[in-house]
Design a protein around this nucleic acid. Structure first.
Lengths: 279, 279
DNA sequence: ACCTAAACGAAATATATATTCCAAATTGTG
DNA sequence: CACAATTTGGAATATATATTTCGTTTAGGT
């Protein structure tokens, strides 16, 4: 049997790279080709089949298997997992474990750290994923509104309260839509064309908020939606929607990133309004 | 045969997202679950097998295939290619960032980034500064309460709403104290010794919330306080107070860290309550 | 140049994975 | 409430993919 490097192979890509450099010299010719290719195109290794990769490298499929085995992996598939992990954008297990490990055996601290970790990740993702253009458009809509009506239930209610509080402080005329479902619907029908509905809704989506959106769209009243998914029933092609996804910890979703976005939306609205010269 | 959307399905991920949004409503329940998951975890779809993904989504493998087909793809594998392409030349963050950058004249992106940075810093500080013991004690107080009465005004109101929402979901009997100042005071005087007041208050401190705390302490009712400073008038030696300080951006204070702490407090309360064996 | 040991490629095999099919359950409708 | 249509889960099937095997080739040492 061909010589196999005895020590356990690296299970994370960042370890694999320097590790492979050391053993590169000792590899047979074909296997060196594979090594060079793998270091230059990790994404190809991660995503393609042996047949496809080996063709690109210019070797036979069996060479790929030998390569993986000579590195100490069980087979090609085993090695491929390491490459796949390197391009997953949610190394949540890692960061979570690391964080927990750093903290000493204090259980309460680690519980909090789970939540802070989730919050940080949610916020980081928010920053990367938010459509800046959508944010601007939404702010403009709100800034131009005669009155901003805010609606949302359940987990969205704190967001409603915060947006209301901040918008009022900024001098934007805003009203929270409350009450029984049918009375809310009645109120929604009263909105004028120069009003705006600011609807906040998260999964599981309440039928009520959705109904309000339907009513407003039917009346040509503009709608700005804040939701956790573009697939939300309140997100339509003809409104302005912002998306924020909260990381969940053992079944609980926070509101850290959502609140951050809400504040930003409110402040931007104030800024745009000031630019437009409304008092 | 199940209804299939006729038009050719999108071959690039960025087209798939809005496209799915339009057809989302028409999908069966299980297929909607898949859709939501797919939009939230594209990397999982790209890298895992049907069996693994379907387990994570909570549906059967055949549902995954039906999903792909109902979208017009030949099968799951066909659809998976689209997801793989999206992460092919690895750094998706870059391309996405660039895209957002050129789309907007860079001002919006940086405005949001100010807020996200402030939020992240606040959360990091929260993690270091929180007194783990105080958190535990506070949770125990809330867990042992017959009824938790929650009070807070202004910027604290969203926190009140969130704590109320989460505690109720966890089966903790909790009530929000609302109304005119003097009627709230009257209500506060009704609290029994085995009730707990959960008071949230931030600078500038409202006299009202402070008064409630005074009343409860005089009546030997336990108080758990959530504030932005130990110097807050509602934080006393003889109550249990948690402290969270939000970084401010051009005069505006967010609630990201506060919400994180609130969720943690609520979940801990639920956990302690379960440990105590209360129904 | 010969011999030996390692490396290699092609095909056979084993395994994993996706897809199809159908009966049961669910949902919507008259 | 019953009927029809749709949706769903699980097993059977088909396909794709990795792995092993083995005869052949190559390279290095004497």
């Amino acid at each position: 049997m061909t010589k196999v490097i005895q020590v356990k192979p690296p299970r994370v890509f960042s370890d694999l790279k320097p590790w492979l450099q050391n053993h590169y010299q000792d590899l047979p010719k074909r296997l060196q080709s594979v090594a060079v290719f793998a270091m230059h195109n990790p994404d190809v290794i991660a995503l393609n089949t042996i047949a496809s990769i080996s063709e690109q490298v210019g070797v036979t499929p069996s060479a790929m298997v030998r390569f993986a085995k000579s590195l100490g992996y069980q087979g090609f598939s085993d090695m491929q997992m390491v490459f796949q992990e390197s391009m997953r954008h949610v190394p949540q297990p890692y960061s979570e474990r690391l964080n927990s490990m750093q903290r000493s055996a204090d259980t309460k601290q680690t519980v909090l750290s789970h939540f802070t970790q989730a919050a940080s990740e949610s916020i980081a993702r928010l920053e990367h994923n938010v459509d800046a253009n959508a944010l601007l458009k939404a702010s403009e809509q709100l800034a131009q509104a005669r009155v901003v009506y805010i609606a949302g239930q359940g987990r969205a209610e704190p967001v409603v309260a915060y947006l209301h509080y901040t918008l009022v402080k900024l001098g934007v005329h805003s009203v929270v839509l409350t009450g029984m479902p049918h009375s809310m619907a009645d109120k929604a029908r009263m909105l004028k064309e120069d009003d705006v509905l600011l609807a906040i809704s998260f999964s599981p989506y309440t039928a009520n908020t959705r109904e309000l959106v339907d009513i407003c769209l039917a009346n040509n009243t503009n709608v700005v939606a804040l939701t956790d998914s573009t697939l939300s029933p309140i997100a339509r092609g003809d409104d302005f929607h912002l998306e924020v996804l909260e990381e969940e910890v053992s079944g609980f979703r926070g509101l850290s990133a959502t609140m951050c976005l809400a504040l930003c939306l409110a402040v931007e609205t104030g800024r745009v309004r000031a630019e437009l010269g409304n008092q």
